[in-house]
Write a protein that binds this DNA or RNA. Structure first.
Length: 807
DNA sequence: ATAGGGTTAG
């Protein structure tokens, strides 16, 4: 508005001829673009300047029109650019070329091409061809760019250095082999274009791009690129930044640093590239050191610097420093750039201040997609899933990233079914399914125990060519692991082109959870042997694998080396695993001793592990002590009651067991002796857990009868047979998948001995929505059946039936 | 040419 005002005053007497007025407007526009960084505000201001031209009777000629088209397209007002262009009665080649560039900048190569095609051959020139070739290469269509280049040659237009530059940019998209680069270099030299800096720069970036292709040798190609760079007679800013960012992108920060240190006048872009390189590699303190050096060198940090530094603060948990940067930006900039605000949002939520993050968002005048996605992630990561859902629905536009965040957020918060529904919607709506979206959907299947759906997703993943994706691969390893299909998990792991710590941890967990303790330990050792540094999760995983397999000494060893060798301070969760390890084999007093000497105040998981051990090993006294602690520590007492009752029962002290049960009933806890069932074809497998020898087991039989009647009433299973699996607690424990078919199959094969305990893990879909505490079958209150028929689900719960369809 | 939003392991 300020501009309009000054203009009204200024336009009047002194400016009379067209050229002066045009010049005045040109200056205004130029100023405007320089002053404002927000696309939306620029476009609004340009529109007002433009309106002012028209109302004041000024008729812009072709040069000004082109300038306006150009500005509109650069500041996301393609519609205005097009409207202007359409009003020109017979646009000349310059106007057309501007419009081609406008469409190109807006990501519309097809529209650009239609303008190009309507341009008669007689008026076409090299610049026009260049614009169209650039349109293709900027929009990632290397092949089309090259085709047009050939067409241009065929029609005898003379390519210039800019043509070569954009063709090389197009080739950079395609080249994935060293030979491509060498051949291109020859072609460039032959054409005599090797004297142009811009062409050589483009050639260097072909090498750089090619170096990051998995098929090529990065080291070799970066060497060639740097040779080209150093052999240039003189280098411009772009040459320096291309080579430095090339090294940064190819993860060779030392080499990048060497080139950087050799710069006499260090460019802001180069500083930024180095800083962002360090941040991406997780070397936050190096990044901050660079930032300090840059500051001391008198450089003024721009929005790129600030976003990188804020992102470093967010990931390194340096909240105070981040706040200082915030204060600095607020002090020095009149208008904080949207990307800086986005980084701020992330800083706030990663430091646990979701509401402050939201405040930054609410204060943002011009929000972009990234801003919305950042807040969405904030809600999701804080587990505030309802707010996330609302926010997701409020979003003015969503890209595939927003969908992905929402899908994995739902999956992580136990809403696997909703997550899959969302993934399906994504497919139906034709939104691009990236590998992260697949990872989220596969995780949902892991949570649900939906083996079939997961397998279908795996097939789809291969079909889409995402099977080399790290995140999707990791999700698959976990999914197959949780579903108990160990071989598949292993196969995915082995065929992944590259694996990381997450992959190793996932496979170790898969083995450990399903009773392959020895194999899990072997795999862990292999991982150490390959010089992969384990983290706290690796130790949690391997110690629990040892615990399930009864490898007590191994488990203790890992607990010890975690701190002595790997400098990881054992957390309370690690202690809980250690207690579990000891209690499971009956070394209860040792466990007690660890509890007494540990540096934490023992929490519920610790006492729970001890109590479970007491139950198995019939140690009533210690069990009572643990139960008392649990009553103090937890609001929900049902699990503790059951464990305690079973501890008494295991020791044959039925009366006391009955007393606990009575107490439990009196307090309104509805838990009968454990009974869960799974229907497979015409057989219902009923698992009885707990003190099945106790006279109270009659309750279970009564319940069964009730169930039989209920099912018959629904007309669902007239010819069902019941198989009772009696599972009195004993020492042996089998880790099983929760996937119903799988569970039954394993059951059949293993022929579980009388007295085996079934342990069911996290993904308890078969048991239904029985809250989150479904860790042990003895705690499970299953009142639900899922019958799967192809892709359809019939879901019976408390006498009600619902159907689901995933695909 | 540089920046900001994502995923997977217990």
């Amino acid at each position: 508005m300020v501009y309009l005002f000054t203009m009204k005053n200024a336009v009047k007497p002194s400016l009379q001829n067209h050229a002066d007025i045009a010049n005045f407007y040109a200056v205004q526009l130029q100023l405007l673009c320089r002053r404002h960084k927000h696309a939306t505000s620029v476009s609004a201001l340009v529109r007002s300047v433009h309106a002012n031209m028209i109302t004041s009777g000024f008729r812009p000629r072709s040069h000004m029109l082109n300038r306006l088209i150009d500005i509109y397209s650069k500041y996301s007002s393609l519609v205005y650019a097009k409207r202007l262009f359409d009003k020109i009665p017979q646009p000349d080649v310059v106007a057309r070329t501007t419009m081609i560039a406008a469409y190109s900048a807006s990501g519309e190569p097809k529209l650009a091409r239609s303008v190009f095609d309507k341009t008669p051959l007689s008026i076409r020139d090299t610049v026009c061809y260049n614009a169209m070739i650039t349109a293709y290469s900027h929009n990632n269509d290397g092949h089309a760019a090259i085709e047009l280049f050939l067409d241009m040659r065929w029609k005898s237009f003379r390519p210039d250095e800019y043509t070569y530059t954009s063709v090389l940019a197009a080739l950079a998209l395609i080249a994935d082999h060293e030979m491509h680069c060498r051949q291109l270099q020859c072609a460039v030299v032959k054409s005599g274009m090797a004297n142009f800096k811009c062409v050589v720069n483009a050639l260097i970036s072909v090498y750089v791009r090619c170096a990051s292709s998995p098929l090529a040798s990065s080291l070799l190609l970066m060497d060639a690129a740097s040779k080209l760079f150093y052999e240039m007679p003189e280098r411009d800013d772009l040459s320096w930044t291309t080579i430095i960012t090339g090294y940064v992108k190819n993860d060779d920060l030392d080499a990048a640093r060497k080139v950087f240190d050799g710069m006499d006048e260090k460019l802001l872009v180069a500083w930024n590239a180095m800083i962002s390189g360090y941040v991406h590699k997780g070397l936050f303190f190096e990044a901050l050191d660079m930032f300090r050096k840059m500051y001391l060198a008198g450089m003024k940090p721009d929005e790129f610097t600030c976003t990188s530094i804020l992102s470093a603060c967010a990931d390194a948990g340096l909240f105070l420093l981040g706040k200082q940067v915030h204060a600095y930006v607020r002090r020095t900039e009149e208008e904080i750039h949207v990307s800086v605000c986005n980084a701020l949002i992330t800083l706030y939520w990663k430091c646990g201040r979701v509401d402050d993050a939201r405040k930054v968002f609410d204060n943002l005048l011009f929000k972009d997609l990234v801003s919305w996605n950042a807040v969405l992630s904030a809600y999701v990561s804080a587990g505030r899933i309802n707010e996330a859902k609302l926010f997701f629905n409020e979003m003015p536009e969503k890209n595939s990233l927003a969908w992905t965040v929402m899908i994995s957020g739902l999956a992580q918060n136990g809403l696997g079914e909703d997550a899959l529904k969302l993934f399906n919607q994504m497919r139906v709506k034709g939104i691009e399914l990236c590998d992260y979206a697949f990872a989220g959907a596969i995780t949902s299947c892991a949570v649900l125990g939906a083996l079939d759906t997961g397998c279908q997703l795996h097939a789809l993943l291969i079909q889409r060519g995402y099977d080399s994706s790290l995140s999707a691969g990791n999700a698959l390893v976990t999914f197959y692991g949780r579903s108990g299909v160990i071989e598949a998990a292993r196969n995915v792991f082995l065929t992944m082109p590259c694996v990381d710590l997450v992959s190793w941890n996932a496979l170790v967990a898969a083995l450990g959870q399903h009773g392959y303790g020895v194999e899990a330990v072997e795999l862990f050792e292999q991982m150490l042997h390959e010089n992969i540094t384990p983290d706290r999760i690796s130790f949690l995983t391997v110690i629990s694998a040892c615990s399930h397999a009864g490898l007590v000494e191994k488990g203790r060893h890992y607990f010890n080396i975690m701190h002595s060798v790997y400098k990881i301070k054992p957390g309370e969760d690690h202690y809980a695993r250690l207690i579990d390890l000891l209690s499971r084999v009956g070394r209860l007093l040792e466990a007690k001793e660890v509890i007494q000497n540990m540096p934490y105040k023992p929490g519920a998981p610790i006492w729970e592990a001890l109590l479970a051990g007491c139950r198995t090993h019939k140690n009533v006294d210690l069990g009572v002590e643990a139960a008392e602690k649990l009553f103090e520590l937890t609001p929900q007492h049902d699990g503790t009651y059951i464990l305690l009752a079973n501890t008494f029962a295991a020791a044959g002290r039925w009366d006391e067991a009955a007393k606990v049960r009575k107490l439990m009933r009196d307090q309104g806890v509805k838990k009968e002796p454990g009974c869960s069932w799974i229907k497979v074809e015409n057989t219902v497998h009923v698992f009885l857990v707990g003190d099945t020898a106790h006279p109270e087991i009659q309750v279970v039989y009564n319940y069964l009868e009730e169930l039989r009647l209920k099912m018959r009433k629904m007309g669902y299973v007239p010819d069902t047979q019941y198989v009772l699996h009696d599972m009195e607690t004993e020492q042996k424990e089998y880790a099983l998948s929760t996937h119903s078919e799988k569970l039954a199959v394993v059951f059949g094969i293993l022929k579980l001995p009388r007295g085996a305990t079934i342990r069911v893990f996290k993904n308890l879909r078969i048991c239904g929505d029985c809250h989150s505490a479904l860790k042990f079958m003895s705690k499970v209150e299953a009142r639900e059946i899922i019958v799967r028929d192809g892709n359809r689900f019939h879901h019976f719960r408390d006498g009600e039936c619902s159907c689901g369809n995933y695909w």
